[in-house]
Write a protein that binds this DNA or RNA. Structure first.
Lengths: 340, 340
DNA sequence: CTGAAAGCGCTTACAG
DNA sequence: CTGAAAGCGCTTACAG
């Protein structure tokens, strides 16, 4: 059916190993020979067989992106990560395999790894004490991470700069004149508390608020629409009522905004709202649209791919720790407080 | 490093081919032998090498999901499709490879296909006259489709039932008493017009409106927030003004809703809104939340995976054409018209 | 600068 | 019911 390396060799009048070397560039080839090989390949419309290449010991050209199964909804638009990773992988000559299994199904991940299918992996949504890390390390599979573990030593990772995320939000509001802010946060599971995205944004918010002389009321809501409605109730009951809200809880924010509007409070007249880590579409659905501070998911994913490929190809050995700056997009939901 | 099939054979005291057959089940094995082989595999923590399996002619265990590069934003939440496909593939024992290249980069797809890496492929977001179809067909790679082409003959596909999508929306509004509806549609490119999702929803809307005695005003907006603002202007200028809106344009809908709210019209008091193919989060961001009719992306993708795997494993040969019914979720944005 | 050959770890006729 | 062996299409020392 499809042409093999031998067909190419025959047509070019060289040995098959010469064809291999012409492709890989791992030994010097005379210009004339290379010429003929290339012509033969073009003529036969030759594509090397991926399995044979992988079996024979070269890189298979596949990397895996692993995300924990059943832990959806953490990032605004996961597809942004996946799409960006796929594109960058292709640009660098790799295929992107999607892996997903329950976060503590260590065996499942283990057998994926030992199948030998992939040259390396990217672990998404890394938690503080992620059980995937030892599994992949032990198998000696090169990997990079999206997210930051507690023990960062020797690990390659790229993460959103959650400190900056919190700081940008507070600075924006304080700059507008707000000095009393409601933080619509999320309930986090034990292992993550203190070191996951929420914990880090939380600390940054507290620190920035303190520095700016802003009073901060933290409310941990369920990640659900009703959770947001309850939070709106808690917010409304506060006296004095904060003049602004920072939200790091997509789903609850929806319920919160609905309830606030139904209560007759206006945004940003009565409350300014800044949403963290929310997608553009969701931000544009409210009236007025929401001011946001979000990490650039595409850039984060593409960087993680670059690191992994650099590592696989021996161009880099330094276990980089990269924090990517989030971006503030001012829309209509934030304004100076209207107060005597 | 990792155990090979020979290691297992040695430990179990059988030949290596017996181990293979024990795994594949392609010939009868005595219970005792199977027993010993399984024990040996467990003891050695054996995982078959994927490349060797693929090279030797068996199925490689990888399927590809191909989506057109740079054509984002058509579906509400693409990640739903990708995640569901990944999960179902894993359940059925396959890896999911993500492929994406520009829709008319036929060569790129062609070389992917001829690499021999995947057992089959799923083509996402199929257009009426999709150029990928002949490429994959010619390579004799088994494939199934998400979306419906014009020429359906011999093709395996699963698609949202866009006729039902339009019908459900009109029936819901007509049932509430609306008889004059604004259709916020999208501008479509030439090759898709008339046969893509938009064209199909469009026809269904027209037909249902006619049957129900509903007057329908179609407006094709740019797929952008400003496009939606402009549409809101066109809507407001209508006399008499329709009492309801059906939107099949996520991004424009955001601008539309913002503008309508800013104009002082209330939802659903002055206008009812039904959004087609929009994600739950976006639907919950507005006040009140939006009534939606959306295709179940996860189910569609999982079904496409099932069909492909069934086809690969020879369980099915009938080129099924499946249309999946969308679901109406009534939220606060639709109500009877308030009119004398 | 190039060729002949071993080997990667499987699957699958071919024998028995 | 099981074994010995060819072969899948590459890569990479080993020779020259």
């Amino acid at each position: 059916m499809a042409a093999t390396r031998d067909d190419v060799a025959r047509l070019a009048g060289v040995s098959s190993s010469t064809v291999s070397y012409a492709i890989s560039g791992r030994r010097t080839i005379s210009a004339a020979t290379r010429q003929r090989v290339e012509q033969a390949m073009a003529e036969l419309d030759y594509t090397p067989n991926a399995f044979a290449r992988g079996l024979a010991g070269a890189r298979g050209g596949i990397i895996a992106l692993h995300y924990p199964y059943g832990r959806r909804g953490v990032t605004a638009s996961e597809f942004e990560y996946v799409a960006a990773a796929t594109d960058r992988a292709r640009e660098r000559g790799y295929h992107l395999l999607l892996w997903s299994n329950p976060i503590d199904d260590v065996e499942g991940l283990g057998s994926l790894v030992s199948e030998g299918l992939v040259d390396g992996a990217i672990l998404m949504e890394l938690t503080a004490d992620d059980r995937r890390v030892p599994v992949v390390s032990r198998a000696r599979l090169p990997f990079t991470n999206i997210g930051r573990p507690d023990d960062v030593d020797g690990l390659w990772f790229v993460d959103a700069d959650y400190d900056a995320l919190g700081r940008l939000a507070i600075d924006h509001l304080a700059g507008l004149g707000h000095d009393h802010v409601f933080f619509l946060s999320q309930s986090v599971r034990q292992p993550e508390r203190g070191s996951g995205p929420v914990g880090r944004a939380d600390s940054a918010l507290v620190a920035s608020a303190c520095q700016r002389g802003v009073r901060l009321e933290t409310h941990r809501a369920e990640n659900s629409v009703p959770g947001g409605r309850a939070a709106a109730g808690a917010f409304a009951a506060l006296a004095p009522r904060p003049t602004a809200v920072v939200a790091f809880n997509e789903t609850a924010l929806a319920g919160f905004v609905q309830t606030v509007a139904a209560t007759g409070l206006s945004i940003p007249g009565d409350v300014s709202v800044v949403a963290l880590s929310i997608g553009d579409l969701a931000a544009e659905m409210t009236s007025p649209p929401l001011t946001t501070v979000s990490p650039p998911g595409g850039e984060i994913a593409a960087t993680a791919v670059d690191h992994l490929v650099d590592r696989l190809e021996g161009r880099r050995h330094d276990a980089p720790h990269v924090l990517v700056a989030p971006q503030l997009v001012v829309r209509g939901s934030s304004a100076p407080p209207t107060r005597p």
